[in-house]
């Protein structure tokens, strides 16, 4: 049993706190009755994930997580919620169909079991010492060399999304 105030104890405590933030955010996102609170829970969860990235010594990924997921995606989701129906009473009540709950549990259980099986069956290489260079330069190099195909494909997906939203936005207008 390590002491709480040793190095391992403190890092473990920080990790558990970050895990708790992520988990509680996810729980709020799933269980909250009001849509806007679900969004807030999701954002809390994403902040926790950013904290875990920071904990794993990749501050660049952590800050990008904050900038893109919490800042951009979260704000866009919240904005969409604000444009939707503000009255929470009109939302369909949950759990009307008892089959739906069972199916949900089954699906999530299957996904969890699959991921757990993958995690347990993979031979993890134990990495000793501080993590290798996962800084900006390394990420940029690998994005533009090893993973340039994936990078370009993602940009095509984003382009399609932009054009699609433009088409949708254009439809309701008579002139610009």
């Amino acid at each position: 049993m390590t002491s709480l105030f040793s190095q391992e104890g403190l890092t473990g405590l920080i990790f558990l706190v970050l895990l708790g933030i992520t988990g509680s955010g996810a729980l709020v996102a799933v269980t909250a009755g009001r849509l806007i609170r679900s969004v807030a829970g999701l954002l809390l969860c994403l902040i926790g994930v950013a904290g875990i990235y920071y904990f794993l010594n990749s501050p660049f990924v952590a800050l990008m997580q904050l900038l893109i997921y919490v800042g951009a995606v979260g704000v866009v989701i919240a904005f969409a919620v604000m444009l939707a129906d503000p009255n929470p009473d009109k939302q369909p009540a949950r759990g009307r169909n008892p089959l739906m709950g069972g199916l949900g549990f089954l699906t999530s259980g299957a996904v969890f079991a699959g991921l757990a099986f993958l995690g347990a069956s993979t031979a993890w290489k134990r990495h000793m010492g501080p993590p290798t260079d996962s800084g900006m330069a390394a990420i940029g190099k690998s994005l533009l060399t090893t993973y340039s195909m994936v990078f370009e494909l993602i940009s095509i997906v984003l382009l399609v999304a932009i054009i699609g939203s433009l088409v949708l936005a254009r439809a309701g207008r008579e002139k610009i």
Binding site: I36, A40, L63, V70, G71, G74, A78
Partner: peptide, 24 residues
């Protein structure tokens, strides 16, 4: 820190949530 500029923008993107949640 080496990512100072990025850090400021990462945090600056959070504070709009304060406006949003406060207003809502």
């Amino acid at each position: 820190i080496n990512l100072g500029l990025l850090m400021i923008f990462a945090f600056a993107s959070i504070n709009v949530l304060g406006i949003l949640l406060g207003g809502w």
